[in-house]
Design a protein around this nucleic acid. Structure first.
Lengths: 244, 244
DNA sequence: GGCCCCGGATTCATCGGAGGAATCGGTGCA
DNA sequence: TGCACCGATTCCTCCGATGAATCCGGGGCC
């Protein structure tokens, strides 16, 4: 069989694209699984019929996507392929968007976190519930100061939402929320919140969500989380009509 | 200023990572916008303090992510940065997952499409409504055959869901649904649906969603879409407990 | 004047080779 | 047994050269 002989299916495919597609096939075909090691650059390049340079471009692209992991002096490995790992690249592209397109992203965040809150009400662990309580206490003490430590409050805000999303038990939701409401996006969000008492209202909302989780009331948890994130959403710039 | 002098912040960053980060800064910093052209490889490599090879690896990675677009003989450009474009890379990683992890992905799809259906009820255009009707008619005629053309039905199924998701008006939802419930994932889905009458039930569900959209009843549209996708979800393999 | 063909300049695509850096594993010594 | 050393392996980075695609302007033709 000629090196690249059986893949004239799609013309206009660059060598790098062939590398990406080749590795994808090796994974979906079962030849490679999570944690497995790839052949050395030279061998894989020969097998795919490309030069080492082109091979490296493809492998590097898959590394950025979170599919592969290269270690100098060791080798190239397939990652765990966890949703969290794969979605991490999403964070990068989300952060590229300016404040103008924040609204549709936040609408997705609201829908996903609302679902996660409902799921979490039935399955949150006592440890996580306690952890969330501690976080809310710390946030409360932050607000009690004369001069509010905004950075600390954002930190607590992030921690609370992360616990809820995580306890929803759906790793895809967790990863997507992390990507959409990650560090950059969240900082941008709070920078736009100059309303008086935004922190206090957030705190009350969070406590309401927590009580719903503590009592295992899924419907209440959904409603509280949705209301909280709708409040936030209304402070965003841009067209209003994303909600009924 | 030394080429790479001011970025010793994070050690252990490869040359390629510096390229990716450098281009990201150029975009977020406003130096580059959608459609803008990047400096030629040689110049950009000099500016970022890396060789042409390393630069190409970084640029290639950003191309795969949908951020850049290179054209031989022309130049390298920043893409539109549309959510649809940026999320296309997500489809690739979603397709890497086997049937086992289909359930959490489908749960996300259900939540997002349900939201989209609710939004679409208020803002769907007459043209889109008509287009959806035609699609459903075609699907119905497919089912009327003695030997069902499964490929054609899947095609109609895809088209219907795409119209609804698109008419929700949130490009992020549209892009995410496209990535999660794209071609590969959908084929895998229907391959597992061997129940008798699955197509007929799907058709009835779709028609119910359509009626809700036609009457502008957002709540009905949400309920119908959620019920439809929950039906599908129950046929998936894996742990059950993703719903209350 | 308007149109078409064509050749040079520009730019990305691909290749091959070389040396450096990090890791791993075996060897010899205390 | 425990440890330091060293060679082999592997990825990382750079450099130079050639090919391919595109763009652009000149020149000829109608």
């Amino acid at each position: 069989m000629h090196p690249r002989g059986n893949w004239a299916i799609i013309q206009g495919m660059s060598r790098t694209d062939e590398v990406v597609d080749g590795v994808r096939r090796m994974i979906t075909g079962g030849e490679l699984g999570p944690g497995d090691r790839l052949p050395v650059e030279k061998d894989l390049a020969d097998r795919l019929g490309v030069s080492r340079g082109s091979l490296r471009e493809g492998v590097r692209a898959l590394t950025v996507l979170g599919v592969l992991d290269t270690r100098q002096g060791d080798g190239t490995y397939v990652t765990s392929l966890d949703p969290a790992r794969l979605m991490s690249s999403l964070q990068f592209v989300v952060d590229l968007h300016g404040d103008t397109s924040a609204r549709p992203f936040h609408a997705v965040r609201r829908v996903l976190e609302t679902e996660a809150a409902g799921l979490a009400a039935h399955r949150i662990t006592p440890a996580a519930l306690e952890e969330a309580r501690v976080v809310l206490e710390q946030a409360a003490s932050t607000l009690a100061q004369d001069e509010i430590d905004h950075a600390a409050f954002i930190e607590a805000d992030t921690a609370f939402h992360r616990i809820v999303a995580d306890q929803g038990g759906n790793p895809v939701i967790t990863a997507l929320v992390e990507a959409i409401a990650g560090r950059t996006a969240r900082e941008r969000l709070w920078r736009g919140l100059h309303e008086e008492g935004a922190e206090a209202r957030t705190q009350r909302d969070h406590e309401a969500v927590w009580r719903a989780l503590a009592t295992g009331d899924a419907e209440a948890a959904r409603v509280r989380m949705a209301a909280h994130l709708l409040d936030v959403e209304e402070t965003l710039p841009g067209p209003e009509a994303t909600e009924d």
